[in-house]
Design a protein around this nucleic acid. Structure first.
Lengths: 143, 143
DNA sequence: AAGATACATGCATAATTCCGTATATATTGT
DNA sequence: ACAATATATACGGAATTATGCATGTATCTT
């Protein structure tokens, strides 16, 4: 109840006309924030900001049906937040938008080193991609 | 077929229970991000992060009907992002959530000094509150 | 070539959010 | 007490988003 108006810049507004009103765009940031404002998409973005991940891996991570994951990926891809590359049958996705990367750091903290999400068991069961099951390094997979 | 793990590899994971999988919560941040992911709410938050503002001022800022503004304010208040205080007939709102303040800085940049939005004309027409029309200092409006 | 695997897309419905209108409440002034 | 002002809430339909399911496509294996 103590936070009260402190500024007195009213007196500085002596010329009412033609004061270039510095119209800020709130539509663009809000439409991009909308993509982060979804638990499963946020989880996806958190995963791929560390390293590219294949769809089957994300599928195991979210524990959701494959079409569900692909649909979320499509939204992120269409908005230009992520990119993908096909390696054999697998498609790897990674974060390309640096603005969003900054936002993710503000919201979730810095990207940790290792992926925290998949247990060994879950990976064996649900994610058969080479990156999960062979010892594949990032450079072999990368673009 | 992909290489399958050997039995002894599996044996290194002999205690499947209590492997703290560091379950990250994405529901909480995403539900708060949802409140930012709306152009008018974002504009409100941007306005009141600099200084407390009354409802009539925000009404002029958004150029939306008063109930509309009050409804957005309610969402933000119910989520604990903002607080309010009544001064006479006017109700002033300000940002209390510091986490969200950080997010706003990441998304919109640092809060500027002066409110950019209301022209002198618009203020005279639409915002009759003392802060807008009299030369009111913080102390006069304050508790 | 046929089947299997990994992924994408289209579509329909369910769930949620948006937002306009009507109305209620509290404060101030006459 | 009455009117005017500032703000809040209730309610409902429109618009959007979420998501399950069926199916399509490309690649790999045999």
């Amino acid at each position: 109840m103590n936070q009260l108006p402190t500024a007195q810049m009213a007196s500085t507004v002596e010329s009412p006309v033609e004061t270039s009103v510095e119209t800020t765009d709130y539509d663009t940031p809000s439409s991009r924030l909308k993509l982060l404002a979804h638990p499963e998409r946020l989880r996806i973005l958190d995963a791929i900001r560390r390293d590219a991940e294949c769809v089957c891996h994300l599928e195991a991570l979210l524990d959701k049906p494959q079409p569900y994951v692909s649909q979320q990926l499509r939204l992120l891809r269409d908005a230009g937040l992520i990119e993908d590359s096909k390696q054999g049958q697998n498609v790897y996705y990674w974060l390309v938008d640096n603005e969003v990367r900054t936002w993710l750091e503000a919201v979730l903290g810095p990207a940790g080193g290792a992926l925290p999400a998949l247990t060994y068991h879950k990976r064996m069961i649900a994610c058969p991609c080479p990156k999960c099951n062979d010892e594949v390094t990032r450079s072999e997979v990368s673009v």
